[in-house]
Amino acid sequence: MRWQSDPLLHVEHLTMRFGGILAVNDLSFTAGRGDITALIGPNGAGKTTVFNCITGFYKPTEGRIAFARDGRAADADVAALTQTSKRHGRSASGDIYLLERMPDFEISAQAKVARTFQNIRLFQGMTVLENLIVAQHNPLMQASGWTLLGLLGVGPYRARERDAIEKAKFWLNKINLLERADDAAGDLPYGDQRRLEIARAMCMDPVLLCLDEPAAGLNPRETADLNTLLCMLRDEQNTSLLLIEHDMNVVMQISDHVVVLDYGTKIADGAPAAIRSDPKVIAAYLGVADEEEAQAVAGDRT
């Protein structure tokens, strides 16, 4: 139960209101370091909204999102940081961030929380390789002396750029797209674009990677490949994953921990096996139109 023994993300009393709509209602959960944590729920349950709060695209109406980037943080340290007006503090094990206080680009750059989008957001008019290089913007920017040295052609920029290309090649190899490195990202088939978006996020060396429905629109073969890829990220790259997924096969196969949302409220939280047999979850899925999912959730009990 790593989400209890070594959590890296603490979401506490998160509430997000859009005018009259209560998209997320007093949600608390933790995600374990090195876990694949799945966030599931029927359409409109508020999953993407939770992601947007964690990654800073929305400012939560209420609540705290603490992120212990480097190692388990003592509650007292987080509480002490909350008392100050700072976004970033240190505990014995490393840096802690209060994500709800940070702008989106700092969350990805400093706290190392990367994400993908439900509707793929690649740089369509740039090549596959360029997409992966742009993802390494901040270290490269530093290497180019914030452009000044790079413009004059001095400094370590050339070497760092070569490293960046190597890293891009490494990931292209992992997602089997090395052959298409020089093609425009918008020219790739849908499934490849999904994998490229994951590789692009991985080029930032994230500690936590948030994937919004990575299997949407993939055929069974591609879905199986995706499962392998995600397990590889967890096991070889030591990246913790937060995953929104409708495909229950994916969720049950690869996740270590499942959090279930319905109408913005958490209705269940636990290991996949426990979720599968939770009557509230089955009711939530049976209550909505998507029969197939409900059956998939209930699947093993019959």
Binding site: T55, S108, F117, R121, L122, V134, A135
Partner: peptide, 19 residues
């Protein structure tokens, strides 16, 4: 590259840590 990425998709840029 960041300029061009910005032209392509500003939200994706922010998710990649670009100010």
């Amino acid at each position: 590259r960041a300029w061009e990425a910005l032209r392509e998709d500003e939200i994706a840029c922010r998710s990649l840590g670009i100010n």
